[in-house]
Design a binder for these strands. Structure first.
Length: 593
DNA sequence: GCCGTTTTCGGCCCGACTGTTTTCAGTCG
């Protein structure tokens, strides 16, 4: 019999969150927050809790912040038996689909419990039936309006899984921001929330404004053409649903509070909690209106002023996730992050030789116009026959064309490359002799995504062991909202990348964003070089590298030294060459064994 | 249930809005 796989940190966190929800449902004081905090902490803990426990037992688990004797014992129980008896008991006592119901907007644990106890609602489907039958309005603390709201929330829940890819949200938010600015040129207006932190998926769009006339601005927001429904409209706050199915909200404060409100609504929630606690330790109070000593505001007009008054350097929004940035700020050791405009080259470009929309010349022109200094042309290869992927002959023909163009250019380099396909067993679809002639070889998975972890990991490692492979393109092959990342032993992938001198890519095309921030951070910490590419199939796509790739890298705490394509072309190519010779050394060692 | 440069006990973030209420609980961010 196959041994049960040890629960991952994410699975442990999920169980702890469910505990928190059930405890809250029962009106238990403080414990829910303790479980919630522990869940967050386990989730963002660097090492697998299972390994920690295997090595040092239950006492070792207490190395994880916010895990004490109680929760430590629960985690141990989960690791040992695959279950938490207390969670099973809570589930049995109130057999509802807590996880699904928790995602219905406006429905919290208390109401969920009341609905179950009074009329037996256990799932979103049963909730919908009860609302339609008019049974919900008969309960205490519920009315006809509650029913209408729940039905609307259920519709929203069915339409979306709750979060939206950033590529969809960013243009929409910028358009709304522009409308608000046009309406109130004197007001301060900003995008806040997870969008300002550049998370890869966004729950809703948050806007913050400072204005002397809040009511005019909230009215403007509530009547935007993009708005399909207004949930709530108060004097300083509006909550709406947009026609695209995304929720959006606006908060308006007085100018003296703009920085405090911006920080507050940028979050994350966990980052804010830490700031609040620091304020409290100093005998201050922090809210969305400012930092107060007693009744007197001592900061709040700008975020910089606010952080300074808390004794902290300014924390860039991309870092505000309570993933160590508070500790780093307190020690004045915040990383020097990659800046916009720092990328000099783009290493994954498709042209009309395969599935791109533009010619090599057009892509080069667009790249120059964006201020880039070099480009690698990396069209698809043989296995992607559907997009006319190149065989060896076509590849050499294209390389000749690229080099001819390169020879004519002044002050810009265009490099011959390919995006070769990694087959099921880790072999490549192009012969080594052809790859050897190219400047930049990226390898990528385009099919068979569902392999077991061990096979998938071996597949990527074998591809990286080919000495001609310089880059691993979109390493986990995820597609946001469509396809999960491949199941990989990522630590093993990172170790192999380091050993073979292969750089890992942050593919910035909006539906991939692969590596994600956490993987990229792990890779960089291990000393593996990264590249940030647009994966452009059209000249306009070149913008993705700076617009989405750079913020993602900032979320991963990357500095310019971590990213190869911040280097001038000569230094970049030298780094690739170094990587190839490292892979050759690794391979000859493997052959000798 | 966790935590500690006020603490091993006594705290635990804070305010806006809604709906159902006659002063507030629940939910959200």
């Amino acid at each position: 019999m196959r041994a049960r796989a040890a629960p991952s940190n994410a699975e442990i966190a999920h169980a702890l969150r469910e505990m928190a929800w059930f405890l809250e449902m029962d009106g238990v004081a403080f414990k829910p927050r303790a479980y919630e905090k522990a869940a967050h902490s386990v989730e963002s803990f660097e090492r697998p809790a299972a390994a920690l426990w295997a090595a040092t037992g239950v006492d070792g688990l207490r190395e994880i912040p916010s895990v004490g004797p109680g929760i430590g014992a629960r985690i141990e129980e989960l690791l040992r038996t695959g279950k938490i008896a207390e969670l099973e008991r809570l589930r049995a006592a109130t057999p509802i689909d807590a996880f699904a119901l928790a995602h219905i907007e406006g429905l919290g644990p208390k109401h969920a419990k009341a609905l179950y106890e009074a009329i037996g609602v256990r799932t979103p489907q049963e909730l919908e039936a009860a609302c339609r039958a008019g049974r919900v309005r008969t309960l205490p603390h519920f009315g006809a309006r509650s029913e209408t709201k729940l039905l609307a929330a259920l519709e929203a829940w069915k339409r979306t899984s709750g979060r939206h890819p950033i590529g969809e949200c960013l243009p929409l938010a910028r358009a709304i921001e522009a409308r608000l600015r046009a309406f109130a040129p004197a007001a301060q207006i900003a995008i806040a929330g997870s969008l300002r932190r550049f998370r890869d998926t966004i729950g809703d769009l948050d806007f913050v404004a400072a204005s002397k006339d809040p009511a005019a601005l909230t009215h403007c927001f509530a009547t935007l053409p993009e708005v399909s429904h207004v949930y709530a409209h108060g004097p300083g706050k509006v909550l709406v649903r947009l026609a695209s199915g995304i929720d959006a909200d606006l908060r308006v404060v007085q100018p003296g509070s703009f920085g405090a409100a911006l920080a507050y609504f940028t979050g994350s929630k966990d980052h804010n909690l830490r700031l609040r606690r620091i304020a409290k330790q100093k005998g201050l109070k922090l809210n969305e209106y400012g930092l107060f000593r007693g009744e007197r505001a001592i900061a709040g007009r700008t975020e910089e002023e606010l952080y300074a008054a808390l004794g902290l350097p300014f924390v860039p929004p991309e870092l505000r996730e309570d993933r160590g940035e508070i500790e780093a700020a307190l020690a004045d050791r915040l990383p020097k992050l990659l800046e916009h405009g720092a990328l000099r080259g783009d290493l994954q470009i498709q042209t009309d030789w395969s599935d791109g929309a533009a010619s090599i010349e057009e892509m080069v022109r667009a790249a120059r116009a964006r201020g880039l200094e070099y480009l690698a042309i990396t069209d698809h290869t043989r296995d992607l026959a559907m997009v006319r992927g190149a065989d060896e002959r076509k590849l050499l023909q294209q390389a000749t064309a690229v080099r001819a163009l390169d020879a004519k250019l002044r002050g810009f380099r265009v490099l011959a490359g390919a995006e070769v396909n990694i087959r099921k067993d880790g072999s490549l679809d192009v012969a080594d002799e052809a790859l050897e002639t190219l400047d930049v070889v990226g390898a990528a998975v385009h099919s068979i995504f569902g392999q077991p972890r061990e096979a998938a990991t071996r597949r990527l490692i074998r591809a990286m062991e080919n000495p001609h492979v310089d880059l691993l393109f979109h390493p986990t092959a995820r597609q946001l909202g469509r396809r999960e990342a491949m199941d990989l032993d990522f630590d093993a992938v990172v170790a192999a990348a380091k050993r073979t001198g292969t750089a890992l890519e942050i593919d910035a095309i909006p539906d991939r964003l692969d590596l994600d921030d956490e993987h990229a951070r792990v890779a960089a910490k291990a000393g593996v070089p990264l590249v940030i590419d647009s994966d452009a199939h059209h000249p306009s796509h070149l913008a993705y590298a700076d617009e989405l790739g750079v913020p993602l890298a900032r979320r991963a705490w990357l500095g310019p030294a971590d990213v190869l394509n911040t280097r001038p072309v000569g230094a970049f190519l030298a780094a690739l060459k170094d990587g190839r010779s490292r892979a050759r050394r690794g391979r000859s060692k493997a052959d000798a064994r």
